[in-house]
Deep mutational scan, measured.
Amino acid sequence: MKGKVVSYLAAKKYGFIQGDDGESYFLHFSELLDKKDEGKLVKGSMVHFDPTPTPKGLAAKAISLPLE
């Protein structure tokens, strides 16, 4: 699924993505496929991810940034 980063707290390594389906997904650095892309996780960045339901809500897994 595609989505847009709505927040990312680099110090805490987490944030949120708004998916194309309108839902909010929890984003964690550990799910970023290329850790070098962390600096690109800023508000408004477009990402691809696997939407995954968890006991705490919806989460983004296997997060990647589109090729530039």
Rank of each mutant, 00 (worst) to 15 (best):
S24A: 08
D50C: 14
Q18E: 12
K56V: 07
P66V: 15
V47H: 00
S30L: 09
H28G: 06
K12A: 09
K12N: 09
D50M: 15
G39R: 13
E23D: 06
K13Q: 08
E23A: 11
E68R: 11
G3E: 01
A59F: 10
V6Q: 10
A62V: 06
D50S: 15
L33F: 05
V6Y: 08
S30V: 08
K12V: 08
I17Y: 01
Y25I: 02
A10W: 10
T52A: 13
V6S: 10
L58P: 10
F16M: 06
I17W: 01
P66T: 14
Y8I: 09
V47A: 05
L9R: 12
F16I: 07
K2V: 11
V5C: 03
H48A: 11
I17Q: 00
P66G: 14
L33M: 10
P55C: 09
V42A: 09
P55K: 11
G39W: 14
K2D: 11
K13S: 05
E38W: 07
K12M: 10
S24L: 15
A11E: 13
K13W: 05
Q18V: 12
Y14R: 05
L33N: 06
H48Q: 14
D37R: 05
F26P: 00
K61D: 02
L65D: 02
K43V: 11
Q18L: 15
P53Q: 13
F49M: 02
H28S: 12
E31Y: 08
G3C: 03
I63K: 01
M1N: 05
S30H: 08
S64H: 15
S45L: 14
M46G: 06
M1S: 06
K61T: 11
L9S: 15
G19Q: 00
L33G: 04
L27R: 00
S64G: 08
K2W: 13
D20W: 08
V6P: 02
L58H: 07
F29I: 11
H48D: 07
H28T: 07
G22R: 04
G3M: 00
D21E: 03
V42D: 05
E23G: 08
H48I: 15
F26S: 03
L32H: 01
D20L: 09
Q18C: 13
P55I: 10
Q18W: 11
E23R: 14
D50K: 14
S64W: 15
I63Y: 00
P51D: 02
L58K: 10
D21M: 03
F16V: 06
Y14H: 05
G3S: 00
K40H: 09
M46L: 14
K13A: 05
Y8M: 05
L33Q: 09
H28F: 07
K40A: 08
M1G: 07
K12W: 09
D34K: 06
E68S: 12
K12I: 06
F16N: 04
L32I: 06
G22Y: 04
L9N: 15
K35F: 08
K12F: 10
L33T: 09
D34C: 11
G3Q: 01
Y25R: 00
K61R: 12
V42Y: 11
T52D: 09
A60R: 00
A60I: 01
D50F: 15
L58W: 11
Y25K: 00
G3A: 02
